[in-house]
Design a protein around this nucleic acid. Structure first.
Lengths: 203, 203
DNA sequence: CCTACCGATCGGTAGG
DNA sequence: CCTACCGATCGGTAGG
């Protein structure tokens, strides 16, 4: 197993029931919010009583933190994979935005909860999530800076351009539905092209 | 007073204390969320006890609903004002997006709470907010359809283009700070130009 | 994995 | 505008 494979496939193993609890919690957190979700509801979603959850998880807070931290790690991984071995900066940006948008369709609940419940995390967990998010934002901004430095991109503000691209992903997580009339690929490719026109790369 | 003036200036009058309570609630809702905000905290922010709030407002739920409904009405008003009397469809779109973005800088807390706490509303209030939001979305989408019909705009998907423009506003509400290094006008004008390139209008 | 239950907290009311 | 307080709910623990 190579080093780069490790980063992608190695993630904390969960028991089947542990997975089921996490999936149920994610769905409920997305639907009604972290605070409004009770341990009784999470338990009921997997066929057990609320207190029995504590045989599998240490707290409701830990459940939220694990969901958010894992999602941020996956986002970093898909980004790295998307730009690996690609040299042209316009290609890199386009592929990065495509990966960004695709992540937000494939993991919309995680992204939705991740963007909405940061304040529900305790200080330690929040700091860990914010650190991962900042590092990801720097990757996107770095790509734009690279293109500007090479005179390939032309933007009024690097920061504003990167915010715009990042925000489009968040938007997707809010309205995307698998059974909607916009397909994943349609959104991904269109937003990839948006990204290039946004940084002033023609055609 | 003309009919069009009425729509803009007539809004329910609040007593000074009523205003203070609303402003305090908005700030707290934005900071820690509706559910996590207690009536004790809202009261403390205006120098009274929790139960005394009920001399000025009928419930915490009503406070949230009033904030969100008023914000949606203001958004409709600024949109109408921005495009009134403008004929060219590219100008109309640009002005609409500028008004949209400016609303999200000037009323970022309202927009932030409005986008985040829809599920905290009871059914009746939620339906009213969703109706106003849908009607606003149709206005933006309508402008794009108009430009496409006139062969002035060229987009892969009208729906996707309008989602993108709307989502950029939401993003602004999430990260904009008055004391940040991006000025309101800088963001407004840059996003206005983004909008035109996004629908395929050159220069 | 369950029942029984604790300690804390909350929105809102009663009655000044 | 206040104190006193109700009824409900919640996350988590005890002890099987």
């Amino acid at each position: 197993m190579s080093g780069s494979d490790r980063a992608v496939v190695t993630r904390p193993q969960l028991t089947p029931r542990g997975r089921a609890i996490r999936d149920a919690a994610l769905k409920l957190f997305a639907e009604r919010g972290y605070e409004a979700t009770t341990t009784t509801e999470i338990g009921a979603a997997v066929g057990i009583r609320g207190p029995s959850l504590y045989k599998h998880v240490s707290s409701k807070q830990d459940l939220l933190a694990a969901i958010m931290l894992d999602a941020m790690d996956v986002l970093h991984d898909v980004h790295a994979l998307a730009v690996a071995g690609v040299d042209d900066v316009a290609d890199r940006l386009r592929r990065a935005v495509e990966a960004h948008v695709r992540f937000h369709t494939r993991h919309r609940l995680e992204a939705f909860v991740g963007n909405r419940e940061i304040r529900s995390l305790d200080e330690v967990n929040r700091a860990a999530v914010v650190a991962r998010r900042s590092s990801y934002e720097r990757l996107i901004r770095g790509l734009i800076e690279e293109g500007v430095a090479a005179s390939r991109f032309h933007v009024a503000s690097v920061k504003l351009a990167s915010y715009a691209l990042l925000d489009l992903g968040m938007g997707v997580a809010a309205w995307y539905r698998e059974d909607g009339d916009l397909s994943e690929d349609e959104i991904v490719y269109t937003y990839g092209r948006f990204a290039l026109t946004l940084v002033g790369v023609a055609g």
